[in-house]
């Protein structure tokens, strides 16, 4: 049966502002399916973002939402979660928002292992502002600010998250739409800071500069580079050249969760004379 997205969309908000073929809409649909699968209650769910095309997402979702300052989704979301630990807090945003201006907030949310889910739509570019390179733009690729090729190496968001202390890290792509909701469901269920990176496409500012003739070519590239973690186990290093692992990349359940630890601090403070 056709999925009923309308239930989670603010009335009158569609069509959304994203360009034709932009993967952010595919990710938003995945998030909606995940929220529906988990039967989340709108009044107990907050979707929080910073600034960017990806960060426009909360404007469409009919639940508690916060559209904050550039790079600051994690800071505002932490505030929500600390004040109301019973809420499901979901952060959404782009690679620029999350790893450039917001990189600091990102790593510290990971370090604290606070029980929130962060969906990061990585299109390797600052889409909204006209295609400047981001910390995720691969070496040699073109952006409006690197017309002769980017000299910087790009971040591996998943490795960054694991290194900084996140306890659930997964990766999917906008092409593999069917998997997006499943990864998000697992991430929300996980007690701790969960990061779901979705490799995304920005045909408007990234695709055309990097010789992609169409959205379809960009989607086909996502299809080709993605290798599920299970399949990768049987592949040689040579076969894995240029590929990107997808699925649940890391899961750790023994690390204490931050709001639970903070509740203990409150108890200790109350007991102190």
């Amino acid at each position: 049966m056709a999925f009923d997205y309308d239930k989670w969309i603010r009335p009158g908000k569609l069509p959304h502002i994203w360009c034709p073929g932009c993967g952010h809409g595919i990710v938003m649909k995945g998030l909606i399916r995940a929220m529906e699968t988990l039967k989340l209650k709108k009044e107990e769910t907050a979707v929080v973002s910073g600034i960017g095309c990806a960060s426009r997402l909360p404007g469409y979702i009919d639940c508690c939402t916060l559209h904050t300052a550039h790079g600051r989704a994690a800071a505002f979301a932490t505030g929500v979660k600390m004040a109301k630990p019973e809420m499901n807090v979901i952060l959404v945003g782009g690679d620029g928002d999350g790893t450039a201006i917001g990189g600091n907030h990102f790593i510290h949310a990971c370090r604290r292992n606070i029980d929130m889910t962060y969906i990061i739509m990585n299109n390797y570019i600052y889409g909204m502002t006209g295609g400047q390179f981001s910390p995720c733009t691969p070496t040699g690729h073109k952006a409006s600010t690197t017309p002769y090729g980017n000299p910087d190496p790009g971040f591996d968001i998943a490795k960054l998250a694991i290194g900084a202390g996140a306890t659930f890290v997964a990766r999917g792509t906008a092409f593999h739409a069917n998997q997006i909701d499943k990864l998000i469901v697992e991430a929300i269920q996980h007690k701790g800071f969960s990061v779901v990176e979705i490799l995304d496409d920005c045909p408007t500012t990234y695709g055309r500069r990097n010789k992609y003739k169409s959205v379809i070519e960009m989607m086909n590239r996502l299809k080709e580079v993605a290798v599920p973690v299970k399949a990768a186990e049987k592949m040689t290093a040579e076969q894995l050249q240029g590929k990107v692992l997808t699925g649940v990349l890391y899961k750790e359940e023994s690390k204490p969760e931050y709001t639970a630890e903070y509740a203990k601090v409150i108890e200790r403070a109350k007991a102190a004379k």
Partner: peptide, 8 residues
């Protein structure tokens, strides 16, 4: 339906 970015 799954892949359409635009709910269309």
């Amino acid at each position: 339906e799954l892949r359409c970015p635009d709910f269309a």
